[in-house]
Each structure stands twice: as structure tokens, then as C-alpha cells.
Simulated assay, not measured.
Amino acid sequence: MQFDKRAWLDRIKRMFAGFDRPLALIVFLLLCVGIVTLYSASLDVPGRVEDQLRNIMLTFVLMWALANVPPTTLMRFAVPLYTFGIALLVAVALFGLTRKGAKRWINVGVVIQPSEILKIATPLMLAWYYQRREGVMRWYDFLVGLVILAVPVGLIAKQPDLGTAVLVFAAGLFVIYFAGLSFKLIVPVLIAGVIAVASIAAFQDKICQPEVQWPLMHDYQKHRICTLLDPTSDPLGKGFHTIQAVIAIGSGGPLGKGWLKGTQAHLEFIPEKHTDFIFAVFSEEFGLAGGIVLLTLYMLLIARGLYIAANGATLFGRLLAGSLTMAFFTYAFVNIGMVSGILPVVGVPLPFMSYGGTALTTLGVAIGLIMSVARQKRLMQS
């Protein structure tokens, strides 16, 4: 039987027809940078890079599968997935496993963290809701959206898991904003936030005393914020992460110390250097120049995602792609901010850089959903 090269090439092209090439290229470059940095950060732990490569392969399969699923099909899973996720969060609150003072996991044959499901299910549910209300939207629809968002955010924050709660809240809030929420209603909240931050900074000597209780916050969350304002107040405790990460970033200089030559990382001064603080390892070895390249890749990722969202064929597609794209911005902003010492340490991974299968899978699913929206638009134009 004669081998038909052209037929095989056409078949391969059809297999990857769902991929948005610019977006796939950006993700590929970020994964390459991540593997290179992880190798340096994990010299003392053999096998970690191999584990991450397996995670990447699984993520690639999920990304490919979801990119080929029409958004109309995705809409059918919005309510069941959201309901299932909420049910699991309630089960965690009742029967969950407690580790390091947090109840975030549940054993259903395998141990899972249900809050990861809500990172996708919440914006999916909100996009479905506003798609159904298209053309007849009223002011109370935004209140309904806030309730849909508040339920998972409240359950996750209670675990407590402030980092994941922030990510779920941001992803959901972007859907509500893109659906038409007036910016005039957001401005007062932003002003209140600025006033609150300024007040904490101005009166930190008084309100950061051990006997002072902060409403709606755990003691460890209060301690993180107070340590952010003055890391030297607990240099060997909560402030250690921030101090060592800032030293690593600053010591990298304009061009960095070179790959595998970072002293802060290899002398074990940087905690969680393969996960939450991998940006400190990268900055020490590749310097300001490397940091600019990395930030450029993230900006290109966000720009491409927003382009796909703006050109989505349906309101559901536009809301879903827009919110998931801005979720990547939130991931990167919060992680780099906490490593650089301008935000509290909340345990948010750096997209496609940090080690870990669960977070990488969630990010891959998000990219696959964005590609699905792009594919629908291309099919309508062809």
C-alpha cells in the first residue's frame, strides 16, 4: 500500500484544526521557559521535571479535546458542573480532609480539591446565565450574578483558601463586568479598597498588635498583611518568604546570574521555589531582561485571548473567553506581586511556570475553552 504523504498531512491538520496557532505558540513558549526554570529550581529533587512533562502531556490532551468541543455543547455542562462543584464544596465543609490547618480536600476514591473545579465552573455558569438573559437583561440580573459568584467564593474562603477565592472571584466578576455592569458601580468599591489599604498602612502600628482582631479574617491572614507592610517584623517567620524573594529578584540585576547559577535558589533561601516562588528563581538567573521577556509573553497571551473574546460568535463565547483571559492576568499579577513584595503571600501559582498538575490542568482547560470560542468563529467564517 503506497504511503500518501499529503493525505496524512491533511489528516494531522484536521486533528489540530481546533488549535488557535498564535495562542498555542505563546503557551508553548511559556511552558518551555517554565521547564527550563523548573530544572534549575529542582536540581536537588530528581524526577520533578519528568513529572511536570507528564502533567504537560495530560494538559495538552485536555486542551486539544476542549478546543474541538463547540461552545454550544459547553453550555450544556455549565449548570451541572457548577452544581456538582458547589455540592463538593459543601461536602468538603462537612467531611473534608484537614491539612496544615485548612480543610480544602475530600476523598472520593481519590483525594481532590473541589475549589479547582470552580475556577472553570463559575465563569462557565455566569456566561451561560447571561447568554440566556441576552436582550432582556435587567438590573437585578447583576444581583443574581453576584449571588452565583458569592456562593463558591464564600465556601472557598471559609476553608480557608484566600488565594483560590480571589481567583474564582476575579474570574466571575469579569463575566459580570463584560455582561454590562456599569463601571460607575465598580468605582466606589475601588475607592473603598484604596481607603482601606491606606488606612491599614497609616495605622499598622496599632492594628497589627497581637491583641487586635480583624473582622472576617483569620489571624494568619492578618499576619500576612501586616508582614507585607513590614517584613522585618517577622524576618524568620512569615516575612522570610518575601525578604528572600526580593533579595533574589534584586540580585539578578539587568541580565541575571546565568542559568543554574542562582545562589538564593540553590542555597535553599527561597521557599517553595518550584511552585509559588518560581518567579524569584527565574529573575535571579535571567535578570530584568528575562523578566521583561516573560511579562511580554503574558501580555501577548492576554492580548490574544481578548482578541478572541472580542470576536466571539455568541455572547456566551465572548463572556467565557474574556473572563478566562483576564483570569490569566489575575494569576500572573497576584503571583508576581506577592513574590515582589507588593501583595500578601496567598499561594497563587505562576501560569505555565509553577510546578503542579492540578493548577496546570486547570489552566490548560481554560486555554482549551478559549480556543473553542476561536474555532467557532473560524467555522462560521469558512
Rank of each mutant, 00 (worst) to 15 (best):
R6P: 03
R11T: 10
M15A: 07
F16K: 06
I26G: 00
I26Q: 03
F28S: 05
L31G: 00
C32Y: 15
T37D: 00
L38R: 03
S40W: 00
S42E: 02
L43Q: 13
E50M: 11
E50A: 14
M57E: 07
T59M: 13
F60G: 03
M63G: 05
L66Y: 07
P70N: 11
P71L: 09
M75Q: 15
M75T: 07
F77R: 01
A78Q: 02
A78W: 06
P80W: 11
P80A: 06
F84H: 02
L89K: 05
T98M: 15
T98G: 10
G101M: 12
A102I: 05
W105S: 11
I106T: 04
V110R: 12
L124N: 05
L126E: 02
W128S: 01
Q131A: 15
Q131L: 12
E134Q: 12
L149C: 07
L155H: 03
L155R: 10
I156T: 06
K158E: 05
Q159H: 05
P160V: 08
T164E: 00
F169R: 14
F178T: 02
L181T: 10
L181M: 13
F183M: 12
F183K: 07
F183H: 10
K184N: 10
V194Q: 07
I195S: 13
A196K: 10
V197W: 13
S199N: 14
V212L: 08
M217G: 11
M217L: 15
Y220L: 09
K222Y: 11
I225F: 14
S233W: 01
L236M: 13
K238N: 08
G239E: 01
T242K: 06
A248W: 15
S251E: 04
G252H: 14
P254A: 06
P254L: 09
L260A: 11
A265M: 08
E268R: 13
K273M: 06
A280Q: 03
L288P: 08
L288C: 09
A289T: 14
L295V: 12
L295K: 06
M299E: 11
L300A: 13
L301T: 04
I302M: 08
R304P: 02
L306P: 10
Y307C: 09
A309T: 04
G312S: 09
G317S: 12
T325K: 07
T325M: 06
M326C: 08
T330F: 04
Y331A: 00
F333S: 04
V334A: 04
I336C: 05
I336H: 04
S340K: 05
S340E: 05
V346L: 03
V346Y: 01
P349R: 05
L350S: 02
F352I: 04
Y355G: 02
G356W: 00
G356S: 07
T358C: 09
T358R: 12
T358P: 04
A359T: 04
T362S: 09
V365R: 01
V365M: 10
A366S: 05
I367C: 05
R375H: 09
R375P: 01
L379Q: 12
M380P: 08
M380D: 13
Q381M: 14
